[in-house]
Design a protein around this nucleic acid. Sequence first.
DNA 1: TGGCGTATACAGGCATACATATATCCACAC
DNA 2: GTGTGGATATATGTATGCCTGTATACGCCA
Lengths: 218, 218
Amino acid sequence: MQGPRTVAEQVANVLREAIAGGTIKAGTPLRQDELAEQFGFSRMPIRDALRQLEAEGIVSIHPTKGAQVARMDSAEISEIYSLRELLESEALRLSVPNLAGARLDEAEQVLDQIDAERNVGRWGALNRAFHLALYDACGNHRLLALIEAHHNAADRYVRILLSNLDYRSRSQREHRDLLAACRRRDGDRATSILRQHLREGRETLVSAIREDGLSRKS
Amino acid sequence: MQGPRTVAEQVANVLREAIAGGTIKAGTPLRQDELAEQFGFSRMPIRDALRQLEAEGIVSIHPTKGAQVARMDSAEISEIYSLRELLESEALRLSVPNLAGARLDEAEQVLDQIDAERNVGRWGALNRAFHLALYDACGNHRLLALIEAHHNAADRYVRILLSNLDYRSRSQREHRDLLAACRRRDGDRATSILRQHLREGRETLVSAIREDGLSRKS
DNA sequence: TGGCGTATACAGGCATACATATATCCACAC
DNA sequence: GTGTGGATATATGTATGCCTGTATACGCCA
C-alpha cells in the first residue's frame, strides 16, 4: 500500500480531511484558482481532485458555476443513515460467520485506542476503522466500498456526534456489545445492536443539526 | 431538463452508451489522445469524462497506465446483483405504500413498450425505466441514485441477458407479476418476486459469462 | 544461454494560455 | 424611481505543449 501517486490524489486527500475536520465549512465555494495557488499546483490536478470528491458526494459541482462543499440538510443525513443501516447490517450479517479471531482482536484494540485517544480529530477515523474491521469478511468488495463511501460522506457530521462526550461513551458501550455478539457468532444479535446503534446516531445527529441551524439547502 | 452543458458530459454519455451497447468491449484501453481525435476535442474534456465514468464504475483508471473499460468477472457480476437485491428490495418495500396509480400505469406502459420494441439496444433502457418507476416513491434520493448507478454499471451485461429471448419472456412475466403485486399494495409479495427475479438474472448471467469466457481479470 | 541493466518510445500528468458563459452592475430610457 | 438591457469582470471550460514515469526491447555481461 503506497501513498498517493498523483498530485490530484494528494489534493483530494487534504481537502477531504479538511472538510471532514470542519476546517472548511459546508457551502464554502471551492475556487480552482484559489486552491491552485494555496497548494502550489495548477488548476488541472485540482479539477481532478474536485471531480473525485464530487463522486464521493463530498462536494457538488455545477457546470460553469464551480464547486462547493456539499450542504446536507437533516433529511439527507437521515437518508445516509438509513443507507448505512441497510448496507452495514447486511455486511455484518455476511461477515460474522467468517470473521477471524485476529480481526476481532484488531477491532477491540481500535476500541481501546478510541478510549485512550484525546485528539478529537482522530475519533472519526478510528470509529470508521472499527466498523470496517467487522465487515471485512463479508466477501463483497463493492458493498465494502459503498460503506466506506458513505462513511466519508457523513464523516464531518459523525465528528460532530463524537465530540459529544455523552454520546461517545454510549457509543463505545454499544461498540463493545456489538463486538461481544460477534465473538459469540451471534449474527442476529449483532445486526440488531448495529441497527439500534445507527438509529441512535441518526436521531442524535438530526436533532443536533436542527437546533444548531446547520441545515441549509443551496 | 436540458442536455449536457459541457463537452465532458457529452463524451461521457456517448462512451457510456457505446460501452453498454457492446460497441466498445471490456478491457479495451481508452487512450486519451485517440478519443480526443475521434471526438474532435482536446484531451482535457476526455479526461474529465473518463474520471466521471470511473466514478460510475464503468471504466478503471490506473495512474500512468491509463483507462480501460472495466472488466468484470462473474464474481463481480454476482456482487452487483447481490447489491441490487439488497438496494432494490428495500426501495420497493419503501415505495409500494406510496406508489401513485399514475406511476403504476406508466410502469405498465413501459412493459408494453418492451414487448413491442424490436430494437435490442432499447431494451436495457426500458428495463431500467420500469424498475426505477416502481422505486420512485421510496423517498430516499440517495438510494435511488445508488440503484441507478448499479444499473449503469451492469447495463452491458443486462443487455446480454435481454438478447436471450427465453430469458426476456420469462423476465416480462415476472415484471407483470411484480406490477400486479404493487397494484395490490402487497409489498411483501412484490419484494419476494423482485428478489427471485434478480436471483434468476444473476444465475443466467453468471453461467452465460462462464461459458462464453467473457470473464478475464486484468 | 540467461539474466540484468540501460535506452528509447509512448502515454498520461501537469502547466500555461485562450475561449466562453454567467452574473453583476451601471446607465439609460420609460 | 424602477426596470431593462448591455457591458464588463470573474471563474470555469477547453486547447496545446512539455515533462515525467513506465514498459518494452535490445544489448552486454556473467
